[in-house]
Write a protein that binds this DNA or RNA. Structure first.
Lengths: 365, 365
DNA sequence: CTGAAAGCGCTTACAG
DNA sequence: CTGAAAGCGCTTACAG
């Protein structure tokens, strides 16, 4: 229990240097020092000679303004809050990294809000972020996780979502699913495939429908009929954490479903190119195809979706659709920065920013 | 540019409720309200009836103390800084998640400090953390990345490292490498393997030597001579990022080296169980062994190290040594909490906390 | 048991 | 061009 009221220098005696310390040494008032060192526009108000003396002194003493005091006085915190279901999930960890990288470019730091740790954490994190005075919030919590997005937007209008939260006045960045389907299919067609299969799970999701539209568009572009696409509509397998230790959602597709996909698309409909719902399904398909004596890409080409970490490691390395997390992060950061600069614009209109994905070619297609 | 000096409620008009607001409504002074709502020991000083009135009012008005003001007054920030080379790296992303989870349990939030974004970021992050008054810092930046650890420890004594930073007064948590080798080998021996191979990269690293000691200990425990272990000492392949987008270090082992490993360990020395340096090497070996007509685990069993995400997805699924990131995170958080509680104990002794890894059995061994 | 007052480090009108 | 003063929201001795 620290007796001193010196907050900086955690667990340390070392006196933190303040404006007044510099002011004394420079023989001027704190106002002058403040305006020279931290002043927004107003360091022109100080005589050049005085200003020089002050900046030199500040450098010598290694002066750092106290963000705490500045914030209490009404300045920005230069902190963004980041709501994430689980920061360790490789699905989003790259996005976390890129968001923080962009935040740093904007002179900000990122505060983690891990919402999947316990029930009610989403709302609790929002309250904490707001009371800490964050400048804005990124919400990259997947829609399958609970959390009151409406409350979030009320408590902090400067919020940018990853994917559509379904709120009338939300700002969000999303991946263009039509383009995702179109690009995956176009790659298959360009490399000589003629009959395409789409193994889709959760066909009810709009993302799936958009990808079908995209695949058909790719066929049309090459003058092929939409009937050259066969869609396997399956259900998710059991969802469970990858390891007892982790909270990652990994969708485990049972062998029966994999066999159904292979039976319908490859054997029955003679598809020579398959677009898989995601890299996990693709990776499972790769294994199952081998087990059944079908060669990839010899007999059938496979394209994944996510361009996930594991693509490099499966056999053969998986061609996949990259979601361009860095571009997403840039767009999200830019959006929040604009909201901050524009000030409290209540009743803001819904704004959707769309990112076009890219195909990363490896060996499977 | 906000005109008001109200920091909370980012980009929002909504007046934040303060102690004085409650004080007025309750007809008492701020001192009383403060001691009831935020007071450490001293809420016994207030009459129960008054206290009740105040707490009710606080709940009604949804009062939240301003951490900024509290911090300026000398209270803890309840923020931990987290130095990480790249938060998106799946090697550490789980550790990031677990550290934050533990921080939340201790009533703290985590501020990210991404040190690999640009040169000098490590030191810059340290300064920012210190000036923001973090209560402690976790440094999980891998030793191959630059960063002045000594300065870090000086600026913030309440720092806990993941892995030995090689400083005389550092507190750190590390994985027991002897146990890692011992457990991997013990599993192979228990499942009927008799001649072991260890494919080690960077043999100069102490971690590698410790693992050799562990493997030999496992042999001895079963009454086998240490000569039943054959060590392949190789060099790292080229290190490069997995994707142009990411800063992850992935060690790419060229096919020639993989062939050398197989030639020496499997063909020449008839090893039937291989301990691989890490999951990436193991995954590459799996592919190469298949290409050369050797069955896993039929002809040779393979054990990885990391229990990385991809273990589930390679073919066959990889048995691996789990580094118990959650236990590591717990130990790190507990250590920093103790440092905070004990107060500024300069000249603290070097403290090493060792975590014993576990074998996670899948199909490859 | 309660209140008035000082002060954490800074910014920002307001006077000179 | 420069300084004295008020105040951000809170805590903490110190008086009553």
């Amino acid at each position: 229990m620290p007796k001193t009221a010196t907050p900086a220098a955690p667990g340390h005696r070392r006196k933190t240097v303040r404006l007044i310390d510099i002011a004394k040494q420079a023989g001027v008032s704190v106002s002058v020092v403040g305006s020279v060192l931290n002043g927004g526009r107003g360091n022109s108000r100080v005589a050049p000679a005085t200003a020089d003396r002050i900046t030199t002194l500040a450098r010598q003493l290694n002066y750092r303004p106290s963000p705490t005091a500045q914030q209490l006085r009404g300045k920005r915190s230069n902190v963004f809050g980041l709501l994430v279901a689980s920061a360790g999930d490789p699905l989003t960890s790259y996005l976390v990294e890129h968001l923080d990288e962009e935040a740093v470019k904007h002179g900000c730091q990122t505060l983690i809000g891990n919402t999947a740790v316990a029930p009610g954490r989403f709302e609790a994190c929002v309250e904490e972020f707001v009371s800490r005075g964050v400048d804005g919030i990124f919400c990259i919590v997947h829609s399958i996780f609970p959390g009151d997005r409406k409350l979030l937007l009320e408590r902090c209008p400067n919020t940018v979502f990853y994917c559509d939260p379904g709120l009338p006045n939300a700002t969000f960045v999303e991946v263009d699913q039509v383009a995702a389907g179109q690009k995956a299919a176009a790659h298959l067609l360009q490399t000589g495939r003629e009959r395409l299969g789409f193994a889709i799970l959760d066909p009810a999701q709009p993302a799936g429908k958009d990808r079908v539209i995209g695949i058909k568009a790719a066929l049309t572009e090459r003058g092929l009929p939409a009937s050259q696409l066969d869609v396997f509509k399956g259900k998710r397998g059991s969802a469970g954490p990858l390891r007892p230790d982790a909270r990652t959602i990994i969708w485990d597709t049972p062998d029966e479903v994999l066999d159904q996909i292979i039976d319908q698309l490859v054997l029955q409909n003679r598809c020579d190119g398959i677009v898989a719902n995601d890299d996990f399904l693709a990776s499972a398909l790769l294994k199952r195809l081998r087990k059944r004596g079908l060669a990839v890409p010899g007999d059938v080409a496979v394209v994944g979706y996510l361009n996930h970490y594991l693509c490099e490691h499966v056999d053969p390395p998986l061609t996949s659709v990259d979601l361009r997390h860095h571009a997403v992060a840039k767009a999200m950061t830019q959006a929040v920065q604009e909201m901050i600069d524009e000030g409290p614009a209540l009743n803001r209109e819904r704004q959707a920013i769309s990112i076009k994905p890219l195909v990363v070619v490896r060996d499977s297609a």
